[in-house]
Amino acid sequence: MIETIGITKTIGEKMILRGVNLRINQGESVAILGTNGAGKSTWLKIVAGLLKQSNGDVLLDGVPRKKDDYSQQQRLGYLGHQSFLYEAFSPVENLQFFAKLYQLKSPDKRIHQLIDDVGLSFFKHEPIRSFSRGMIQRLAIARAILHEPDVLLLDEPHTGLDQQAVSLFNRLLLDLKAEGVTIIMVTHDFPQINAICDRAVILRKGKIAEDECIRGRPVSWIHSLYEGEALSS
């Protein structure tokens, strides 16, 4: 599905990624872990097409990413640190704008369905300026999956959410997972990894240090995997 071969990225004088080889199959849900500055977000941004790698290739179904191949871009959904949503607009207007960018045909039904799914039905026509972080994040995920992507790229999606929002958010992700959407998540939040992901990839200093199946493992095990790596070097 998604494969990165020998990705390197230098930003300024710093080498952020030093040859990341990673293969992720259709339907997998993968957590990318690592300390701050390990290169997790950079890797995700390169896969999303926001950054250009210095060297190496990103393959999508075996086809290298090209700059003007927009059908590949259409298959990716990306949720970054920020929501990308316009504060002056209501949820419906925001999603309508992104539907136009993705050139969806007759998107209205899907927009309303999605807003109901994320539990914002009562706020459909309120400008999102007054929304809480949890509400915005719910709408942001709706935006990311609006065009029904095959791959969902999430950059620390749980930061700043309360318990209730987290459980709603996780339920959404699990539904998507059940539909066969590949989920790639950069995060620090171990309980959520446990709830959602099957596989954990740990990056250290721009390289893959661990790549383990974590299905059925307790949170503490993931923790020791992460910590153990941190201590051993």
Binding site: G49, S71, R143
Partner: peptide, 15 residues
């Protein structure tokens, strides 16, 4: 720039 809107435009299939 407020909410990284430009990133939102760039990840979309937009020239």
């Amino acid at each position: 720039k407020q909410n990284d809107h430009l990133h939102g435009l760039m990840v979309a299939p937009v020239d």
